[in-house]
Design a protein around this nucleic acid. Structure first.
Lengths: 201, 201, 201, 201
DNA sequence: TATGAATGAGTCTTCATTCAT
DNA sequence: AATGAATGAAGACTCATTCAT
């Protein structure tokens, strides 16, 4: 594949991302993508066989971008609380700006593929979140920042809440302070109340 | 409308419910419903103009059924804790048997109708849940069963968690004990630990 | 057929007339007639096999009514000029109030049935008009009221003009004075200019 | 649009013209056109959105062809009478070969669109005819060929007659000599009888 | 007689997919 | 590589006609 065609493929992926973010997964057609990219029908088929292949490519690119964000930020962190809050801040952003996120498209895709794929995207995203939070809480326990009796359960609880807020933000109204309240409430059980504000969210 | 056609309409609604539970909202066609009901194309159009009208009728029937469940159970309840647990039990059932629930269809419908309807179905379902839980917690505070500093926030928190579990149950694996753990964890902050088991879930 | 069913059939014919006058012939469906009559689908089929049969019944009723109008007026006429003007007045009415006439429906029906029926409705209506006018002119010639060299040609000419005005009134704008002018112009060639006004139109 | 697709569009327009000439406007379906053109369903939709768009394209093409006919003939005309007769000859052709003309389709289209469009096709066609004839008569008056007291009324009268003949030719029988008679009769009032034969019709 | 539920054929319209250029 | 014309399958919707009640 030439340099030019790599560029074009990336362009298609980026443009298709907007389409999926706006319309979800199920109802997006090859024509929608063709129209959004302003390329020819045949042109799209040179790069992708069908809508699903485009979507999977979009997801892959999304994952890569997300990983880079977290990895890039790590060096600047000096406390577990800050790390916890940074992570939640990223999730909050996705909740508040849900209209630009792929969430609904991913949910739809999982629902369609239910039973077919072993490692579903949402589940692994959730699992990664839990694993990450759990490590942060354990580290915080060690450093004396946190007081969690069961880091895994606390980690899961936070992720359940964030998932709930994500979906609610797409189907109804969720304000910024709703999210803040929920986060404060969630971490209350293992974060001593004098450990500094959470208003950096 | 004759007695017979009322029966038939109900039959269509019940059959369509299965279809929506299985396939969500977006991809369901009039033909899908026709095929599931084993009636003629024109026959379906006698009762419903389009898929959305069928879906709304399904939702309405669902709501009615749900209301009856709650109303029917109320007389047998003698403590706020029991009431709380009964309510969570109903939600748990929907989470565990998610494949038979309309949740994903409702999410999709809300996403499609986003911005159009003021009080979306999911939001009002969520709000009703919060309102109900809040009242239970307040009553529990009065009776000394609970110790909640902020009943509304606690109520919301529980609903966020349940929403998160609902969507996760559809896109990945959520076990019965995952739900139990989450519930215990959620009510821990305002339910004294000696107030009896939650194993009735 | 009982007395009641005769009434009902007449009611259907009258109501269907409105429908044909408004919508022409081609696009009128049995459903349109059923809806207009507010009777059941099956009910209409008891009286008429299909749209064409309804239309023919409407035409027949129309013809009868029209005949009665002319026959009823004849006794009161004492001059050929008055008779001529009465006839043209009737035609003018149909031209000006074209939206309530069956003209377009009839044209459409003839176009559909082209070649099938020997004596088409329009043709016979036209022929009847020519025959009538021709007799009036001949009689007027005898009585000295008119001076026509070729009564048949003059009769035809008038009917051509009226047909032209009829169709133009349905597809564009034709004013009352347009019709008056045309009539005056048409009869000029055989009516002495001092024979009295034509402003009774 | 490529050269090839221009050709195809023209082919569709020409083929559709036959369909409209044969069946009128109302009952013509996209399928009729598809079948006549022997192209695929989707293929037709590449060029036209619906039947109306096809019809309007047919009308436009027809207008262009008609304009060219008149413009092409003008240089060869040296007297107003010849010009008058040429014009009537064109109309006569449409009357006699009515089965190949779009007349009925146009009437139907106007009836359907009644009230929607300001300048209906038939009306403007009629107005153009009147304007043209009026100018010819006025010029003929000046050159001494004609003796018309009211050129506009005479022009209108001729057009009424031709319209009447047109519609009659579609719904019944109109012979070539019927048309000739009518024309001779119509121009008699302002064309001196010694001004040469009209047998060139 | 009268009703209106039910059926299925027919048309409209959109799209995935192919293919000649 | 890239284009976009072309095809045909699939689903929406309407309506003539039948039939059990």
């Amino acid at each position: 594949m030439t340099d030019k065609s790599v560029k074009k493929k990336q362009f298609i992926i980026e443009t298709a991302r907007e389409v999926f973010a706006k319309n979800g997964y199920k109802t997006v057609t090859m024509k929608d993508i063709v129209d959004a990219c302003e390329i020819s029908r045949g042109g799209l088929y040179l790069y992708f066989e069908n809508v699903e292949q485009v979507f999977l490519a979009v997801l892959e690119a999304e994952q890569k971008k997300s990983d880079e964000t977290v990895t890039g930020a790590l060096p600047r962190i000096d406390s577990q609380l800050k790390l916890l809050l940074l992570f939640l801040k990223v999730l909050k952003k996705e909740i508040i700006h849900g209209d630009k996120s792929l969430m609904m498209a991913i949910y739809e895709y999982c629902a369609v593929k239910r039973g077919e794929t072993e490692h579903t995207v949402v589940q692994s995203q959730f699992d990664n979140g839990v694993t990450f939070l759990q490590r942060v809480i354990v580290d915080g326990n060690k450093s004396g920042e946190f007081l969690s009796a069961d880091p895994q359960k606390d980690a899961k609880q936070i992720m359940y809440i964030m998932e709930g807020l994500k979906i609610l933000s797409r189907t109804g109204k969720v304000t910024s302070s709703d999210v803040d309240d929920a986060i404060v409430n969630a971490v209350r059980s293992f974060v001593p109340s004098d450990s500094g504000s959470t208003d950096t969210l």
